[in-house]
Each structure stands twice: as structure tokens, then as C-alpha cells.
Design a protein around this nucleic acid. Structure first.
Lengths: 134, 134
DNA sequence: TTACGTGCAAACGTTTTGCACAAAC
DNA sequence: GTTTGTGCAAAACGTTTGCACGTAA
């Protein structure tokens, strides 16, 4: 129950928050604030843009969504909290999550005194549709 | 000679462009437009903010600098045109280039019909200074 | 001399903030 | 009844644009 999810994080279960959570629960993807705003309005469940931004931040601070930076620098939110990699289509911009077994990718950095805690891998290429179109 | 570099790309050798190139030639790093603006002004060689943005775009379109998106979504420019990876300090934000031999990192994506053209690897961790401070 | 570049000021899109009001507990 | 959240309108932010003027070729 979405109401409980909020309560468990010490957040009040308000209409805008429930609508936002419902949106996230019903979709898979990585959305910009503007896209989310549009979806909610299209569903006849508009929330104020200020409230949207405030709650996206609140949610991400409480670990309900993950904030990420897109290839163009846009801020995007998704609910896949598992560590995962991305495939990005260089033509249409489509972004898909994938799970990759990372081999022990150890940079020579360890020799330079860095302590590497996380390795992030992104793949860029052409999605099936864009290949077909080319 | 910086003048020739511009001419070779069909660009006029103007004062602002020479100052900008001089800045890039004299530093190593990944700078935001604002940082570059500040450096130039501090050196007593200010250029207009509009001219700066216009030329950063022009330079990157002509392959003189590379535009990249930072961890926070900021736009940054650097002159290291070789393919390389980044190490980012999660505490102080310091960003260093490194060269990593990528093993044949092939995502299961090939099976999903994607054509992967490029793999980007970023390392996140603690730089030596921040480790010492902790 | 003519095309290109500069730089101001204004416009822009996105995100944040101040604050009075409303809703949740 | 007290605290928390909402939503408007305004501000802030980084970036882009229109345009008259300057300058490189």
C-alpha cells in the first residue's frame, strides 16, 4: 500500500504524493520532472510544479526514487533501486536498464592512491528499431 | 601556434578565442563555463559571457574541446580528446582522467538486438586527500 | 569591403524559494 | 491545534538569442 510506504518514511500521505507514487508504480523508465508533470496532468491528476519538484527531492532523499543525470545533463528519476547499467541509443535517446556482471574492473587508480568504491558502466549504441531504420 | 589552430578550422583568430585557447593550453582539467569565465577575468583577460558560450560551442563542434556532463549535470569542457575514463571523488568532487584497458565488456544486450558502439566506464570513490582526512 | 565575431541586454527554460493557506495527523 | 505540505507567484539560475557595432581577412 502506497500510503504505508509514505508513513514508513515519516512522510504524510497527501494527494500529490500518492499520485506521484502511483505514477511511479505504474511505469518503468527514467523520467524528467517535466515528463512526470505532463503524465499526471494528462491523467487528470495534476499537481503543482513546485510540489512536484519538492517531492521528487524528498522522495530521493528518502530512497523512494533514484535521481540520475541523463546523457544531455537532464535530471531523471527512476524507481529501479538495484544497481544496474544503462544502454543508451545514440540516435533516438532510448534508455534501457540492463544487468551486467562486471568483471573485476580495477583501474590502475589503486596505484595512485584512490579507493574505488563503485564502478559505473554505460553502453552507447543503436537500439533495434534505429538499426532497422538505417 | 594557437592562431594556426583556429585558421585550420576555418575560424577567425579573434582576441576572445585566443584567450580561451590559451587558457585551455595552460591547464589540465574539466571546467564549467563559469569557472572558465572566472579564470579569464582573474587573469585580466575577461571575455563576454555570451562570447564564451558561443565559442565553447563552436570549439566543441570543431573538435577543439570536448563537452562532457559532470556528475551533478553540469556541463564541463576539457581538451583531452583521447578516449578515457574518469575517477570521481564522491566527497570532494575531484575528477581525474585515467586510462583503463577495457576488457571485452559485452553486455547481454547484443542478445536483445542492440548494437553497442561504445562503453563508458566511470569510477567513484575517494581520492587520496579525502582518505587521509577521514 | 564584406563576412564573421563580439557583447550587451533581453529572453529563455528549468528549478528553487517565500509565503499564505490547506490538509494531515 | 500543531505541524507539515501545497501551490501560487516571484526569484534565481545557467544558457541562448537578437541585434547593432567592431574587427579580421
Amino acid at each position: 500500500m502506497l500510503q504505508h510506504l509514505l508513513e514508513d518514511h515519516g512522510l504524510r500521505a497527501t494527494q500529490p504524493r500518492l499520485r506521484l507514487l502511483e505514477f511511479f508504480a505504474g511505469t518503468r523508465g527514467h523520467f524528467t520532472p517535466e515528463e512526470i508533470f505532463g503524465h499526471l496532468r494528462a491523467q487528470g491528476q495534476p499537481i503543482s510544479i513546485a510540489t512536484l519538484y519538492q517531492n521528487l527531492r524528498t522522495f530521493s532523499e528518502h530512497g523512494l526514487v533514484k535521481e540520475m543525470i541523463g546523457q544531455e545533463g537532464e535530471v531523471r528519476y527512476d524507481t529501479n533501486m538495484e544497481p544496474h547499467s544503462h544502454m543508451v541509443c545514440v540516435r533516438c535517446g532510448r534508455l534501457t536498464d540492463i544487468h551486467v556482471e562486471l568483471p573485476d574492473l580495477r583501474p590502475p587508480a589503486q596505484g595512485h592512491g584512490w579507493l574505488i568504491m563503485q564502478t559505473r558502466v554505460d553502453f552507447h549504441g543503436l537500439c533495434p528499431e534505429c538499426q532497422a531504420r538505417a
